[in-house]
């Protein structure tokens, strides 16, 4: 019964879609996040929706159940078949999607990599919309923690997986700042732990950090699952005064810890703005108003002037946003 209803609803939706496509032919965009049920991507979707409301593009989103490497491929093929103009995607693999992207582009579909790029495989997508200037993530996190611990003592990093490309870029930059900037001379990185973006593993890894390094002063966790788990562990162990936790988290996930004082501050960017910007860029390129090449500039309402960088990489914002007790009430994502 339920299934029939769903199918009817879908049939109805499909009929609507076909009707609309014949009438005006607006730019159609589909966004494929890594997986369904991930609140972070819900904010990006909201950005797309609001962008398309303003610009008059048609927006849909579909998502696989798991973030496994191949799970997005059938969705991309189906979207090519549907004749969608732009496929925006947060790829689950830096290279497994190459073939299907080539295929899509040969049929005139624009491929936008949103929220992360495909390192080494940039030729297979048209452009990448990144949340922030990634070179700043590492140093900015080190500074945030340094400020809280008086630039002194043992610190550790809790990352996602050992091979997570973005996190590894940030961690390299963190190490670089710690080594080169004399300001951080007394901060000592003791270890890097990997929680695989799994709540359970992140929890045991953090507990092991506390057990293995009794003098630990701070933990940087540049991943949303990790930072929440680290905060939870520190709170449970009643060590919030001894060990400071910073990292990249979403306000809704971290609000509790900010309000009860476990975490002083954490950082992120605006996933919403990424969606908004991607929608503007997609429509502009499709209409021929924006040239997809380095140096092009365009306006996005609320974001100001945006510049297309080398390799068609677009950064949504320059610096990270810091969330603390003073401003967290203003954010809901």
């Amino acid at each position: 019964m339920l299934r029939r209803n769903l199918m009817l609803a879908a049939a109805f939706g499909a009929a609507l879609f076909a009707g609309a496509a014949q009438a005006a032919d607006p730019v159609s965009i589909v966004y494929i996040p890594k997986n369904t049920g991930n609140p972070y991507f819900d904010s990006i979707i909201k950005g797309f929706e609001d962008g398309c409301k303003k610009l008059g593009c048609e927006f849909t989103t579909v998502a696989p159940a798991s973030a496994e490497a191949t799970s997005q491929i059938p969705f991309v093929t189906a979207q090519i078949q549907r004749g969608v103009n732009v496929v925006a995607i947060s790829p689950n693999s830096p290279d497994a999607l190459n073939q299907v992207f080539d295929r899509a582009r040969s049929k005139g579909t624009i491929i936008l990599s949103v929220n992360s790029d495909m390192p080494g495989n940039e030729t297979h997508r048209d452009a990448a919309i990144l949340p922030v200037d990634f070179t700043k993530t590492g140093p900015s996190q080190v500074e945030l923690l340094g400020k809280q611990i008086g630039y002194e003592g043992e610190i550790a990093i809790l990352s996602a997986t050992t091979d997570a490309p973005d996190q590894n870029v940030w961690i390299a930059a963190m190490k670089d700042s710690l080594e080169k900037d004399p300001k951080y001379a007394k901060m000592k990185l003791v270890t890097i732990a990997y929680g695989d973006d799994d709540p359970q593993k992140s929890t045991t890894e953090t507990e092991a950090l506390l057990a293995n390094y009794p003098n630990l002063k701070g933990i940087i966790s540049p991943t949303t699952v990790g930072v929440a788990a680290a905060a939870q562990v520190v709170e449970t162990a009643k060590k919030a005064d001894q060990v400071k936790v910073v990292g990249l988290g979403t306000p809704n996930q971290m609000r509790r810890f900010i309000e009860n004082g476990t975490v002083e501050a954490f950082q992120l960017w605006s996933p919403y703005n990424q969606g908004l910007l991607a929608a503007h860029f997609a429509v502009g390129v499709k209409d021929g108003k924006i040239k997809n090449e380095a140096g092009t500039t365009f306006e996005v309402e609320g974001l100001g002037t945006v510049t297309v960088g080398e390799n068609s990489v677009i950064k949504t914002q320059a610096d990270l946003t810091t969330f603390d007790k003073a401003n967290i009430g203003e954010f809901n994502f």
């Binding site: 339920l2 299934r3 769903l6 499909a14 369904t36 579909v62 998502a63 189906a78």
Partner: peptide, 15 residues
Amino acid sequence: TGMTVANIAINAQLT
């Protein structure tokens, strides 16, 4: 394929 091309959500597909 039919469910995917009709944009039926993955939760319905699992079910």
